[in-house]
């Protein structure tokens, strides 16, 4: 089952709408609370990134009986050094992190920690797409 959401840049009032709706669906399907929690943490973090640092984007969640795939695609600054952004210390919006893409890489370690798999496609000046998979 596919759920799709548009994410507007700078709209912090609605940041979290997609992750909250996905959460609601997973709860109604009876997915275990611990898994739902991981999905919420990962998707919320990524969703807020789009709102805060990109020029908007789109979230697509695909729910299957054995797990969920979430694709978060944004048009934005992109992440120049993914490896660096994946290091724990870079999860905060330090000056360095901001310089390497307005903090677009923020929270990546946290997302990775909660996901069963995380793939990142990014191009500087164009945008970033995260592919998150979490098993049920």
């Amino acid at each position: 089952m596919k759920l799709e959401y548009d994410v507007a840049a700078g709209d912090f009032t609605r940041a979290g709408f997609a992750s909250s709706s996905i959460k609601k669906a997973l709860k109604q399907l009876g997915v275990s609370p611990a898994v739902v929690k991981r999905v919420v943490i990962a998707v919320y973090e990524a969703e807020v990134n789009i709102v805060a640092h990109a020029n908007g984007g789109r979230i697509t969640a695909d729910i299957e009986p054995d797990g969920i795939n979430v694709v978060l695609a944004d048009t934005g600054p992109g992440i120049p050094d993914v490896e660096k952004a994946m290091q724990k210390g870079f999860s905060t919006a330090s000056k360095e992190v901001r310089e390497m893409g307005f903090g677009a890489g923020m929270g990546l370690p946290n997302i990775k920690e909660n996901a069963d798999s995380l793939r990142i496609e990014t191009e500087v000046g164009k945008g970033t797409t995260l592919y998150i998979y979490i098993k049920f």
Binding site: M1, A25, K27, Q28, L29, G30, V31, P33, I63, E64, P65, F136
Partner: peptide, 23 residues
């Protein structure tokens, strides 16, 4: 103990189908 509501079905395969239909 949780007492989660079974909104569609206990079996997630069935639940997903039913949720899709409901949507």
């Amino acid at each position: 103990e949780p007492r989660s509501m079974v909104k569609y079905d206990k079996d997630i395969n069935v639940a997903i189908k039913k949720m899709e239909a409901a949507r």
